[in-house]
Nucleic acid binder design. Structure first.
Lengths: 352, 352
DNA sequence: GGTGTTTTGAGGTACGCAACTCATTTTGAG
DNA sequence: CTCAAAATGAGTTGCGTACCTCAAAACACC
């Protein structure tokens, strides 16, 4: 009837008694301090294992007594998604301060590798951990590795640098995100055949490139009836995206789907609205799939202009980054499943 | 450049000094103990406010010293979704025991109100908090209210009893889930017209009824071209669901969409497969939307039999329930945004 | 001014662990 | 067997809070 999952009340003292050693020796083993014979280490570890002993985190935290400081290195521009992450960090302030954790955001130009690398260098003196929205570039990778070598925990956020020695990546699999977008566009277009347009910020950005790759993969294999037009590079700017897309729409009357990979959403929506007006309400609405739930995309979804948004929960990312940094600092294990960021599909009716 | 979100190092001693009182008085104020003049209370609270002081949770936890016990009251049947929740609880065991938290599951027949109520009664003596998959019934409501009156924290899980005095509901908005399912079926069917079938466990179950309500809402208002057939009640059993659905499919050749509200998924899939065989590969595949990501639905999604699953992350629900119970026990605030369960749309390419 | 009551101060103990010192024992090399 | 090095025991202190006791002070009332 009642299945006990956990029952612990043991302390270090109990472990010491069971292993037949003193508290000091257990402490040495627990913290990998030198001066313990291998055989003794084994006995202690066995006692710990046998009782599945877990140090009381509250006691450990209190005894250790050190306040932790984490830095979040984020883009300086007015990116609404990044702003949301910072907002959620702010909302955590009570949670943070009651644990004596300090979180500070460092704004920098994350698109300039040398500037970003410079921002990262030297952070290790002031912070126990760093979360960074990282550009994938050799200079940045070197800076990250330096931080790690200096003993600072490093987590990449939103955008990864897989070749670096960062401890963890908090973000989504962008290829899968692109595939999901492809599947959505394809399925929502339905029977119709025609062309599909892609608007991206730049194909030089790793996350954008990966999304496009995944998108094309699905379109080619599952929706051969839909031809994908060359990618428009709108640099995440509204004006440029609108202009490029408007031109494309006027040239190809048979565009039935659109994937907006990055920002510049307002511009994309404008171009689509112009077309809708000229089409005068025929059954020619373009299926529009984009990324992230912001005030704007929320409005577009509710209006029916946009059909689906691929989203990564910014609150979850902010909290996951903090939790991972904390776990790394404490030497606790990371709950992979909990910290994994899912690819959310958001339509009008499941808007968060 | 660097924006400080939090910087605290104050202790109760500092607050006492600032308020010009002793530690004992601060302690009395902090814990609403009697014997402090209103004016003094104000002075202390001001000092706390002024410094936005937060007690160090680790120290508090250690001093309080009490181990917490939580009970999870769950269905006894072989429900895969519930099993997943229990699995995730098991995975948390390390996290739990390092915080001296005990979590035990109590299996019971949650569909029988008197049995469920009986299981709940008396739990308050043994547990600090209870999470319960609750049937919405007056007897159950009374049992929940009794628990709350006895000082036990109560959280409803997956299925809510809104009229009770439970402290929190961990689960999704089922009307919105049904709406989402409706929007998916409608959009994925596309231009075609025809009928849509619904298979549910029972319309007497609150969550099923709510999902159907939301589904019909969307179908009526947005997809008038699709007629919704009467709900089949499969009692979440494979055999019965298959039989009922097979009959319906043979009677209505123009069924283009299917919403499976509850379990019995294997039966539904069997019936669809039979039809697919007899249709011999024509463009008549039925759009199939169901709930939850299990081993089975995962397979069906990958095979293309099922098109989308509406899902609530069981891991998130398990962890959220524990966190909420813990926050309630400690008197800490609940991070609403973090504990909110989202409605996930899962398609083949964003399978978790 | 005396009485009883309420409010406050002062202090202690305990929680479980980290981190340290210093004395003592054991071990291994010569 | 000797001596230095390595391993271990025993003990202390402090982290910030909860919870408790007892005495002293302030207050209200007659």
């Amino acid at each position: 009837m009642a299945d006990t999952l956990t029952t612990t009340a043991l302390t270090l003292k109990d472990i010491a008694r069971q292993a037949g050693v003193s508290l000091a020796t257990v402490d040495r083993v627990l913290h990998n301090r030198p001066g313990v014979r291998p055989d003794t280490v084994r006995r202690v570890k066995e006692a710990i294992e046998r009782n599945s002993f877990q140090p009381h985190v509250a006691a450990a935290e209190l005894a250790r007594g050190r306040a932790r400081r984490f830095a979040f290195v984020m883009p300086s521009g007015p990116n609404p998604f990044m702003q949301q992450i910072q907002d959620y960090l702010g909302e955590m302030s009570g949670w943070l301060s009651s644990r004596r954790l300090g979180v500070e955001t460092v704004a920098t130009d994350v698109f300039d590798p040398s500037v970003l690398a410079a921002s990262l260098e030297g952070l290790s003196d002031d912070y126990d951990g760093v979360a960074v929205v990282a550009l994938d570039h050799p200079g940045v990778r070197a800076a990250i590795d330096d931080l790690v070598d200096a003993g600072t925990s490093v987590v990449t956020l939103v955008s990864d640098v897989p070749s670096s020695r960062r401890h963890h990546y908090v973000g989504i699999d962008n290829i899968a995100a692109g595939r999901t977008a492809g599947a959505l566009v394809g399925r929502l277009v339905g029977q119709k055949s025609g062309k599909v347009a892609i608007v991206a910020g730049s194909q030089g950005l790793r996350d954008h490139a990966e999304r496009i790759f995944g998108f094309n993969q699905v379109m080619a294999s599952e929706f051969p009836g839909l031809g994908v037009l060359p990618v428009l590079e709108g640099r995440d700017e509204d004006a440029r995206s609108e202009q490029l897309l408007a031109r494309l729409l006027s040239r190809h009357a048979d565009i039935v789907g659109l994937y907006n990979v990055g920002a510049g959403t307002q511009g994309v929506a404008n171009a689509l609205n112009e077309k809708a007006l000229s089409d005068a309400g025929r059954d020619r609405q373009v299926v529009f799939v984009g990324h992230d739930v912001t005030a704007l995309t929320r409005r577009l979804l509710l209006q029916g202009v946009m059909h689906a948004a691929i989203s990564q929960n910014p609150g979850h990312e902010a909290r996951a980054a903090v939790r991972v940094l904390l776990a790394l600092a404490r030497g606790e294990p990371i709950l992979r499943e909990q910290e994994k960021i899912r690819i959310d599909i958001v339509m009008r009716d499941n808007l968060p």
